[in-house]
Design a protein around this nucleic acid. Structure first.
Lengths: 232, 232
DNA sequence: CGCCAGTTTGACCAAGATCAACGCAAGTGG
DNA sequence: CCACTTGCGTTGATCTTGGTCAAACTGGCG
């Protein structure tokens, strides 16, 4: 499951945005500290697995640095990527006992690990946290719904355009985006083949919509055009 | 958002499964009664809207009888169906202020309406409820992830086979399933066209996998074969 | 009976998958 | 330092799946 529980990053955001008085009132600073106390840090090498399908799901994670890929291998070898997590995003909050997806580092990454048991104790102490987390999960569910639309109804150029915009929005990039993942990762995320992703990107480049100085960097020459493709 | 908050039906299930002692301990019977107290009943005619996109989202619903369709109209006229809700399923728990999808009755239906404000008061009274609802939302998120896979990577026969099995599992039907929705609804749910849905079903019928006594009834002649299609 | 909405079937078309080269940069070992 | 390999990425040719367009069929209903 991807980004389904970005508790801490949202709390981070609130902390950054709110006044000290607001913070004291909501007690979120203390909450953040409490979360820090129950977490442990772990470095992960490129393509290393953080957890595998069918592993027991006894903890959840938050990306400190790098990019994490949440994926699932089908019986016939097809792969589905449920999502990518960047610094601040959280993942792996399956309460279903067993992992349904696996998580791997796209490049070298650092993650924080939070045991479920400790998290639940924290929830018991602070009932407001549970409702907060529930809202966040609903937000992520909404994002999944958006992706359903993407995968169910959109053409290849629409999917790639959405991917670029999503990437730019999530990384606060305006002029262009770094693309840490491979073409194969993008394809499996968008439900396309590597070749189609390449062709669509090349098409955008020919139109002058984007520039591709190297495979892992895409610059916007005409962002409005990309956004127009997103619509139809 | 579909089935993202089947609080009450799951509580129902637990109530049916658990002993009286377990119920008393968990207090879920009281919870159920409290939910009943804040809800109001509403009858809905075929194709009548329960709420529309952009309506304020100040309540959530539970299907008492009939089938409800959660859908969204795209700018270009295409329609996306996020899900179907049957008796016991809940829907419409958007906390985002404004509806992103609309909900309509597939046939005549009856639903219960629960205001958000009253629900939140109930959550404040019973902190355990919030965690419970959170878990349920996570389960629905997992289901959405499964549908992502379906829409992203699966062929038309695989999608239709999954749909039939999902329908059968959710309605506890073994020999066959009632299909209350139209072919058009199925198509928009699976990201296919009406014609493709028809052709795939006709194909299954020719193979002797299913029988179609009438468009709204599909009987399994060889369930294993359908399940085999689900894999690959 | 004829109309109407929904379903089914067929003929054709196009988007994207598949198969197959080729390019290119980063190792690797002589 | 230079062949050689290896892993990606890109491009082209061809094929398949599912979409599009069109027509026929079905059952209810005025």
């Amino acid at each position: 499951m991807f980004r389904q529980f970005d508790a801490s990053d949202r709390i981070d955001d609130t902390a950054r945005a709110g006044t000290a008085a607001q913070l004291a009132r909501s007690g979120q600073l203390a909450l953040l500290a409490a979360l820090e106390a129950i977490g442990s840090r772990r470095g992960v090498a490129r393509d290393e697995e953080i957890y595998a399908e069918t592993d027991p799901a006894d903890c959840w994670f938050k990306v400190v640095s790098g990019t994490v890929r949440i994926s699932k291998l089908l019986a016939d070898g097809r792969r589905h990527i449920a999502g990518f997590c960047f610094a601040g995003d959280c993942f792996g909050l399956d309460t279903t006992g067993e992992r349904v997806f696996s998580a791997e580092a796209v490049g070298d990454a650092v993650v924080m690990r939070y045991p479920h048991t400790a998290t639940e104790r924290l929830i018991d102490e602070r009932p407001a946290l549970a409702r907060h987390l529930c809202e966040i999960t609903l937000r992520d569910l909404a994002q999944a719904q958006g992706r359903l639309l993407l995968l169910g109804r959109m053409t290849a150029p629409e999917r790639v355009a959405h991917f670029l915009i999503e990437l730019a929005d999530r990384r606060d990039a305006v002029r262009g985006v770094d693309v840490p993942m491979s073409r194969s990762d993008i394809a499996d995320y968008l439900g396309l083949t590597i070749e189609t992703v390449c062709r669509v990107l090349s098409g955008f480049r020919r139109d002058g919509t984007i520039a591709i100085p190297n495979p892992h960097r895409i610059e916007f020459r005409n962002r409005a055009a990309i956004e127009a493709v997103c619509e139809g």
